[in-house]
Amino acid sequence: MLKVFIPRFVFIVFASMIIYSLSYAENLDTKVQKHNAATELKSFVERGAVLIAEKGEKAFDAFRQKGSEWFHDDRYAFVWDMNGLRYVYPPDTKREGEQVRDLRDVDDKAIGELIIAIALSKEGKGWMHYRWPKPGERAPSWKSTYVMKVQSPSGKAFIIGSGAYDMPVQKSFVVDAVDSAVKLLEHEGSKAFDMLRDKRSQYLYQDTYVFVIADDGIKLLNVAFPKLEGQNVIDYKDADGNYFVREFINVAKNKGHGWVDYQWPKPGGVETSKKSTYVRKAIVDGKMVVVCAGLYRD
């Protein structure tokens, strides 16, 4: 029988390639699952809202059933009324009936008030992000929660929501932040800049932050890179030579809103990363500005 001799270093390289490929595939699969989690969570809340719309408070017992589609692992739905009174809290039903309007996270972000504000908005639904310890842990982690308003057959309005930890930033999160910031700026004018800078607001989370540029390229607001405020950045180019600020302004002027891809450092960093930024035109104190927020694609 003919024996084939494979040098040891070739075998090691070949084995390493297999291990790397399996590891890459596993990591990629995990990333895909995390990104799909936002769509699944939103659908979960929407299905719960349908149940409340059909059965009203009779639906609440179903949400409390451990091991059911509504309460398993770390997934559950919570229900409040429009004043912040907690009706359903499956992890600890003894805490149902509590007033949670004043609920705040570790950064003093007004979670309760923000959830109610989302439910009272014209859309009546949306995402919010805050830092909260995972069960059994002390250190806070980022948590993304989707909430929506629903009316029961009796006519009483409720808020249903659910959240997940360490969810990657989604494009829908960024669009929500920009749209909300535009409404705030057009209502409050430049006075709104202080709120956009506030770390307790819904406009800063993970590596995402809202920034504002005048139509002549003057940086009006940038929480992550405050030294840029007041500077004209119209001629800024990224590592690939793209005049991305000019593109921000052109998209806002010609389309009203849209996405721009470019290279930019993460907050506190120096090396550039791939970034996609959503831009939208707004009128603030009678002048056009470009309101922006982005996500890092790596």
Rank of each mutant, 00 (worst) to 15 (best):
M195T: 13
M195D: 08
L196S: 03
L196C: 03
L196K: 02
R197A: 00
R197I: 04
R197N: 11
R197P: 01
R197S: 05
D198N: 07
K199L: 05
K199F: 09
K199I: 11
R200C: 10
R200P: 07
R200E: 13
S201K: 00
Y203N: 09
L204P: 09
L204G: 12
Y205S: 11
Y205P: 07
Y205W: 13
Q206Y: 08
Q206F: 11
Q206M: 14
Q206S: 13
D207G: 05
T208D: 07
T208K: 10
Y209Q: 01
Y209L: 05
V210D: 03
F211N: 08
F211Y: 15
V212D: 00
V212I: 01
V212L: 00
I213G: 00
I213T: 01
D215I: 10
D215L: 10
D215C: 05
D215V: 06
D215S: 12
D216F: 06
G217D: 04
I218W: 06
I218V: 13
K219H: 14
K219E: 15
K219I: 11
K219A: 14
L220H: 00
L221T: 04
L221P: 02
L221D: 03
V223T: 13
A224W: 10
P226H: 04
K227S: 14
K227Y: 10
L228P: 06
L228G: 13
E229M: 07
G230S: 03
Q231A: 13
Q231Y: 11
Q231S: 14
Q231V: 12
Q231H: 13
N232Q: 10
N232G: 09
N232S: 09
N232L: 11
V233P: 06
V233K: 11
V233D: 08
I234P: 02
I234M: 07
I234G: 02
I234E: 04
I234Y: 10
D235M: 08
D235R: 12
K237H: 11
G241A: 06
G241V: 08
G241T: 07
N242C: 09
N242L: 14
Y243H: 07
F244P: 04
F244V: 03
V245W: 05
R246V: 08
F248A: 01
F248K: 00
N250F: 15
A252F: 02
K253A: 11
N254L: 07
K255D: 09
G256A: 06
G256F: 11
G256T: 05
G258P: 05
V260T: 01
V260G: 00
D261A: 15
Q263F: 14
W264D: 03
W264H: 08
P265K: 01
G268Q: 12
G269V: 07
V270D: 10
V270E: 10
E271Q: 13
T272D: 14
T272C: 13
S273K: 10
K274D: 15
K275L: 01
S276K: 12
T277Q: 04
Y278K: 05
V279R: 04
K281E: 02
K281T: 02
A282N: 04
I283N: 11
V284L: 07
V284I: 09
G286S: 05
K287I: 05
K287E: 13
K287H: 06
M288I: 11
M288G: 08
V289C: 02
V289S: 01
V290S: 00
V290I: 15
V290T: 09
V291P: 03
V291M: 07
V291A: 01
V291H: 07
C292D: 13
C292W: 01
C292Q: 09
A293P: 02
A293I: 01
A293C: 06
G294Q: 07
L295D: 02
R297N: 15
D298L: 10
